[in-house]
């Protein structure tokens, strides 16, 4: 599903160059449940952004579902993101002037699905999240856990192959975190690849594979709590 070979990425600010990813080799199969861990500055967010085609990389190859992702037009990137990837962010990133239903339906809007149809589908997803009664509420009327569940519904609605979650529980209390993780787990059991970035061990251990980054390189990989695999 995802194949990274020797990915390098540096950020240039003025005359300084910060080498963030120093050659990442990674293979993630369809349906895997992976967490990426590492201290801040280890490059885990950068890696997730590259996987999500939000950022480009300097060197190496990234294949998503057999397609080489490299310096394509922004229009093509947008289409790829829309079709393959669903995003879940730490700060939920709901659109403030749209209600819950419209937020969930938004990816289908960009696929030019008619309004009636996309709202019907969005309502189904809200129901699955247990938020059917909140469909007409604006984001600022919802709790953090509700917002994150709406964000997950929004990520799911375009039936992506991969869900990328950047610290999805970072802004939630423990109980809500676990609820959200339970949801994400269910999504994964449907066969959707989930990759999440976290720095919380308990969250990471709910996934099936933990990748630890350190200084821009993969330090270790743990499978279901078993000892690291050597690449």
């Amino acid at each position: 599903m995802i194949r990274l070979t020797n990915i390098h990425k540096s950020y240039v600010t003025g005359s300084n160059s910060l080498h963030v990813l120093k050659g990442i080799d990674l293979k993630i199969e369809q349906g895997e449940f992976v967490s990426v861990m590492g201290s801040s500055g280890s490059g885990k967010s950068t890696l997730l952004n590259i996987l999500g085609i939000l950022d480009n990389y300097d060197l190496g190859d990234y294949y998503l579902d057999g397609t080489l992702i490299r310096s394509q037009s922004e229009t093509r990137s947008a289409a790829l993101r829309n079709r393959y990837i669903g995003f879940v962010f730490q700060s939920f990133n709901l659109i403030s002037f749209k209600n819950a239903l419209e937020n969930v339906a938004l990816p289908l809007y960009y696929q030019q699905v008619p309004r009636k149809k996309r709202n019907r589908i969005a309502l189904e997803y809200l129901e699955r999240m247990g938020l059917k009664d909140w469909a007409e509420h604006m984001p600022n009327e919802l709790s953090g856990g509700q917002k994150q569940r709406i964000a997950i519904a929004r990520a799911m609605i375009s039936k992506p192959r991969v869900i990328l979650a950047d610290e999805p529980t970072g802004a939630l209390d423990t109980a809500t975190s676990y609820e959200v993780m339970q949801l994400i787990k269910e999504i994964n059991t449907e066969g959707i690849t989930v990759i999440l970035v976290t720095h919380e061990n308990d969250i990471a251990h709910m996934t099936k594979r933990i990748i630890r980054l350190r200084d821009g390189l993969i330090e270790s990989e743990v499978l279901n709590g078993k000892p690291p695999i050597i690449n």
């Binding site: 999500g52 939000l54 922004e74 229009t75 947008a78 289409a79 993101r81 829309n82 079709r83 669903g86 995003f87 990133n93 659109i95 403030s96 938004l106 990816p107 960009y110 696929q111 929004r154 990520a155 375009s158």
Partner: peptide, 16 residues
Amino acid sequence: TKEIGIQRAIGANPWN
């Protein structure tokens, strides 16, 4: 800016 960023992340293309 951020809102536009979110829209682009979930599939809005530049023309949108």
